[in-house]
Design a protein around this nucleic acid. Structure first.
Lengths: 108, 108
DNA sequence: TAGGAATATTCTTGTAAAGGAATATTTAGA
DNA sequence: TCTAAATATTCCTTTACAAGAATATTCCTA
């Protein structure tokens, strides 16, 4: 499974879904609990959870007539790995603006 | 400055903008270079860069009649920090599904 | 100062997606 | 088997936004 950073970012970009994900850091919750804590209507809660599920960010476990949602770890690890690829950018010698300017000058 | 994770995620969620950001890991580039390397039209390139700039992900430096864009580091660090808040979730003892199920059983 | 190169902006249009409301589905229990 | 609770799904409407095309702006140079 290659890391689909795009899918992960798209799913997280929606404010309410971000809230849901942040809430689920505390632990698994049912749809009803999520809706109550975030003051969302049940249908939109289910829909957002569906999107998160499709993106692979959460998984479901049926329990009686309830569904318990919890976070998956892989996409977050993938996202963290992706961010790691930026680390060298922050090192001073990689802020190549001056170098770049000189290159531009040289073109004249 | 509080970390606006939402804004960062929204800006990165667009596939072409993600490409632009990934390209800028290599170093600063002008609009024309970005458009050429990613095979984008100049106007949309400028527009995407405008969004990234507004979200604080890139900064611009004018040079002659060109604009050199480079990545900002703060939002990426903030995003990384945000991801750190998930670390405890991955520890086994925090995967509280069983614990949660028992709590549910106890309600009966 | 006229022209061309690089970039930004505006306007329009098409589309994806979020919200609201209503309804369907599933499950436990009387 | 009927009902109620929990959740999912469908339909409709509205809105945000990306693409495309055309135009405006800025700056250098001849």
């Amino acid at each position: 499974m290659s890391a689909n950073i795009n899918a992960t970012l798209s799913a997280l970009a929606e404010p309410k879904r971000l809230q849901i994900v942040e809430l689920l850091r505390e632990g698994p919750l049912t749809v009803g609990e999520i809706a109550e804590k975030l003051e969302l209507l049940q249908p939109q809660t289910s829909k957002h959870l569906g999107v998160l599920n499709k993106a692979g960010l959460v998984e479901v476990k049926a329990q009686a007539n309830m569904r318990i949602y919890k976070l998956c770890q892989q996409p977050f690890k993938d996202l963290d790995g992706w961010l790691t690829s930026f680390e060298h950018v922050w090192e001073e010698r990689f802020d190549r603006l001056d170098e770049y300017l000189q290159k531009l000058q040289g073109k004249d």
